[in-house]
Design a protein around this nucleic acid. Structure first.
Lengths: 335, 335
DNA sequence: GCTATGGTCGGAACCGGTTCCGATGATTGG
DNA sequence: CCAATCATCGGAACCGGTTCCGACCATAGC
C-alpha cells in the first residue's frame, strides 16, 4: 500500500507538495498537480483516513443518533441523511440507541466518550433535554429532526398545521363528531411531542367548530400495538363518524379494525392519518403528507454549511415543513 | 483536551506505561495501572480514536452496505448489527447504496476507495457477484446476510424450507389450487434469489401433491407496488383457493385487495406469507417467521471472532435459519 | 554471594498525513 | 537594471497514540 511519501518521491516532489496537489489546496502549479495526481493514480495511492484525521482533526463523518431504524419515519430520515452525506463525501456513523431507558442511555454515554464526528443529528425521541444540551456543548454542529427544540437547530413537520388540516378536512366534509387518536411515543419526550401538538391542534379545531367533545385517546405508535385498542374503541355503539389519527400506522390500524368489525369505510366511518407512508396508497388512506427524507437531506446541508462557517453564533433556529393533504378514499361526508 | 502525555506526566509514568495501563495490556503493575486509570479519569482523558487508528491500523468500526434502510428486513438486520456492534464497543458505518444502478454503484465505488472498516457486512441485493469478490479480497472479514453466497460467509433464512412450509401448510388444510406470488427484488440478484428459491420450493410441493399448475406470478416487493397486480389477479373468476405469497408485504397486499373486492378471508381465500412483520399480527396473517435482527447479531459475532483469529483460511460457510410457521386467521380449509 | 529469571517500566521509532514558515526563482514596476 | 512582489515548493514540526527493545530491579535458585 503506497504512502504519500512514495507518491512524492515518484513524482519528484516533496511530501508537502504532494499533499497539497492531491488535496486540491492552492499554491501548486497546474502542471505539478497534474503530474502528482497521475503518479498517485498509477501507484494506486489512497490517502489514509486515519492519518488525515489525526492531522486535521476532521473525521469527514457525521453521526446519527436514533431511537430506531426500522420504522418508516426514522428510516426515511436516515435515508435522506445517508444520501446527502454521501453527496458531500462524508460517512455516516449510526447509533441505534433503541428504547431509551432500556440500555439506550448507556449507549448514549458510550457515544459521548467515543464518538468522533464532525457533525451530529439526533432523531427525535432519542434523547431527553439534558442530554441534548450536553450534545450541543460538544463544539460541533448538532441538529435535531422530528421535533422543534430550543436546544439545537431543528427540522420538523409543522405539527400544528398537520393536526389542523386533518381535522379541518373532516369538518369540511360535514363531520361534527370526531375522535382523535394520538400515537404515544415509546419514550417520554422532553418537550411537547409531535402527537401532543397534533392533538392540541385537533382540539382547537374542535372548539372552533363546536364539535362534540370526546375524551382524548392515546395508543401505542405501531400498527400492531394500536390495533387492539382502536378496535375496542370503534366497536362501541356510540362511535364517532370520523377518526383523526396521529399517524398513518394508527389510521391503518383503525382501517383494519373497522374492516374486521364490518364497519364500512368511508360510508360509516371516515379515517384520516398523518405521514403518507407508502402503504397508505394501497389502503386508500386519506392523509397529511410529510417527507422525512427531505428533512434528512436538509439537516445534512445545514451541517455542511455550519462546518464551512467559522460558526460565530450557534444557530438554534427551527425549520417547519408545511404538510400537504392527500385525499384518497377513506374519508367522505358522514351518512 | 488532555493527551496521553499529560496523563503520563501527572501519574509520574511514561507514555508507554500509560498507554499500556489504559488499554488493558499486560506488563503493568496493578498499583500503577490503577493510579494511571485514576488520574486519567480526573483529567477527563479520552483517547484519540484517530491516533489509535493510525497507530494500530484498527478502526473499531464495521461497515454495512445495504440497498435500503427503511424496509423491515433491512432495518431489522441493521438494528441487530448496531446492537451487537455496540456490545463489542464498535461503531457502525452505514452505506445506504439505494437502488443499484441508480447511483448505487457509484456509491459503492466511493466506499471502496474511502471505506476504512475492520469488518464488513453486505445486506443482500446491494451488490452483484463481481463486486462481492472485490470486497472479499479487501483483506477484512466480509459477510453477507439475506442470501447464501459462495463469495463470502453468509447468513440467511432457509428459503427452501420456508417455501415448502408455507405451501405444505395450505396443502395440509386441503387446498389443491394454489397460486404463488413472488416478490421481485428491485435489483437483479447475482445468484438464485430468495424469491426464486421460495418459488421453486412451492413448485416442488405442487408437483409432489399434484396440485393444479398455475403460471408463475411476480410482483413488486412493496405492499403498494404489489397491490394493484394482486388485486387484478384475485379479482378474476378462476382465482385459486389459496395464495402463497413470497413475503408478508405481498400477502398483506393480497389481504387488502381481497377485502376491497369483497372476498372473505379465510372463508373464500387463504393467504400465507413469509417474514412475520410486526403488522402481520394485526392483519391476522398466517406466515412463516424469520428473525432478521438475530441474523444481524450473528453476523457481527462472526466478524468479531474472525477479527480475533489470525484468520488462516477464509471462512465462506453459510448459516441457514430454520423458519417457523405462525398460524393466524388468514388460512383455513377451502370451502 | 552470585547469577539466572521474570516482572516493570522508559526511550524512541513508528503510523501517514497536514501545514506553518522560510527559501528560491521568476516576474513586474519604476 | 535593480528591488519588490508573487507563485511555487521543501524542510520540519506537528497530530496523539502504540509497541519493540532494552534497562533496571527484585527475587529465586544454586
Amino acid at each position: 500500500m503506497p504512502r504519500l511519501d512514495d507518491v512524492a518521491r515518484a513524482a519528484g516532489v516533496s511530501k508537502a507538495t504532494a499533499s497539497r496537489a492531491l488535496s486540491g489546496a492552492s499554491g501548486v502549479a497546474a502542471s505539478t498537480r497534474e503530474r502528482v495526481q497521475r503518479t498517485a493514480d498509477e501507484l494506486g495511492f489512497r490517502v489514509s483516513g486515519a492519518a488525515r484525521r489525526l492531522a486535521t482533526g476532521m473525521t469527514r463523518t457525521i453521526g446519527v443518533l436514533t431511537p430506531s431504524v426500522n420504522r418508516w419515519y426514522f428510516g426515511s430520515v436516515l435515508h435522506g441523511i445517508a444520501h446527502a452525506a454521501d453527496a458531500h463525501d462524508h460517512d455516516v456513523l449510526l447509533y441505534d440507541l433503541g428504547a431509551f431507558g432500556r440500555g439506550g442511555h448507556e449507549k448514549f454515554e458510550r457515544f459521548m466518550t467515543r464518538g468522533e464526528v464532525d457533525g451530529l443529528v439526533t432523531i427525535t425521541w432519542s434523547l431527553v433535554g439534558g442530554d441534548l444540551t450536553r450534545l450541543a456543548d460538544l463544539g460541533i454542529p448538532v441538529a435535531t429532526v422530528g421535533e422543534p427544540t430550543r436546544h439545537t437547530r431543528s427540522f420538523a413537520l409543522d405539527d400544528d398545521a398537520a393536526g389542523e388540516q386533518a381535522a379541518e378536512h373532516l369538518v369540511r366534509l360535514g363531520h361534527t363528531d370526531l375522535l382523535h387518536i394520538a400515537a404515544e411515543p415509546e419514550v417520554q419526550p422532553f418537550e411537547a411531542s409531535s402527537s401532543d401538538r397534533r392533538e392540541r391542534a385537533f382540539e382547537r379545531v374542535s372548539a372552533r367548530h363546536g364539535l362534540r367533545m370526546r375524551p382524548a385517546l392515546t395508543v401505542p405508535t405501531t400498527l400492531e400495538g394500536a390495533h387492539g385498542v382502536v378496535r375496542e374503541v370503534i366497536g362501541r355503539a356510540d362511535r364517532p363518524t370520523g377518526i383523526v389519527a396521529g399517524t398513518d400506522e394508527v389510521a391503518m390500524a383503525a382501517l383494519l379494525a373497522a374492516h374486521q368489525l364490518g364497519i364500512r369505510v368511508p360510508e360509516e366511518l371516515s379515517v384520516i392519518g398523518v405521514d403518507d407512508v407508502p402503504a397508505a396508497a394501497a389502503f386508500g388512506l386519506t392523509t397529511i403528507r410529510q417527507d422525512p427524507a427531505q428533512h434528512g437531506e436538509d439537516v445534512v446541508a445545514w451541517i455542511m454549511a455550519a462546518l464551512d462557517d467559522p460558526d460565530d453564533e450557534p444557530d438554534r433556529s427551527h425549520t417547519a415543513y408545511s404538510p400537504v393533504l392527500i385525499v384518497r378514499s377513506s374519508t367522505a361526508p358522514p351518512s
